[in-house]
Design a protein around this nucleic acid. Structure first.
Lengths: 158, 158
DNA sequence: AGTGAAATGAACACACC
DNA sequence: GGTGTGTTCATTTCACT
């Protein structure tokens, strides 16, 4: 992998805060001209540091008001690939991880309401690999960055 | 709250895929003129459906290679606000939720490495409200949308 | 790596259908 | 909701350091 200098990190920080900021605007804040910023952003994109740009959308406004984390338990030695194919078909799964500990995987689910969540659970439990689930419903979201990454300015600190 | 029609949802879908798409580009895909798209996007922003735009960044490329979910256990009746103030000071916490079940809260943490994660855990356990923690280290990320919302085209389906 | 200038194209605000 | 116009501004490419 590659090395990011301080300017790169500050550019990324700007684009995390406002993904539609103009190159000139970013340049003002980091002390570079617009073309120089563009070249760095192009490089950051081709290097895979920046994977794109997205609107920050409120799921509740789209009707997704219910959220849960579901621990998935699988038979003996189920591979990550098998778990992946068991959960990928469900659009309500917004994130899934294999984890250490008792469970085989942790999946983050969004549903329209509790009834919908129940349907998702039933559908998941019908998957061959999945032997049991343990659901924790989200009561309130205390912290949640739009992008699941700590602010880059903190990368250098401490 | 407000009602989104099919065009709104398709515009949101476009902006989730490419947050820097031009209004003309979006208009081509949804069958609207550029000014009409801008009017709708402005409305979606002022209505809080779209809360901004952000770069989709690979945390690993910034040096955050270790990730964990930590269940937080608190004393008796600790309020969500108290939990919030216990975790908010830690920049490594990228998300936190109060949840149903045994634990009081679930926090999603990103660290540079295992040593760093251990430091975060020690720091969290030093918080007054927190009596115990249970950590699941992320082994692999199977699914993870940049934005934690299901794709809007699926909102209408099913 | 950086700047600066010139041309293209997008955004924006307007009046209007 | 769609055009159309004009101004402003950003993007992009090029020449140059």
């Amino acid at each position: 992998m590659l090395r990011l200098d301080e300017l790169d990190r500050r550019i990324v920080a700007q684009l995390l805060e406002d993904g539609r900021a103009s190159y000139a605007q970013i340049g003002d804040r980091v002390g570079l001209s617009a073309p120089a910023v563009k070249r760095r952003v192009d490089r950051l994109r081709s290097d895979g540091v920046i994977n794109g740009f997205a609107a920050v959308v409120d799921p509740a406004a789209l009707g997704w008001t219910t959220e849960a984390f579901i621990e998935i338990f699988c038979t003996g030695a189920t591979s990550p690939d098998e778990i992946h194919s068991s959960v990928r078909g469900h659009p309500e799964v917004v994130a899934a991880y294999t984890i250490s500990g008792d469970a085989s995987a942790l999946v983050h689910v969004r549903a329209r309401d509790i009834q919908h969540l129940e349907q998702v659970l039933e559908r998941l439990r019908r998957e061959d690999n999945i032997t049991a689930t343990k659901t924790s419903i989200v009561l309130s979201r205390l912290i949640g960055r739009p992008i699941d990454a700590p602010v880059p300015t903190r990368v250098t600190a401490q």
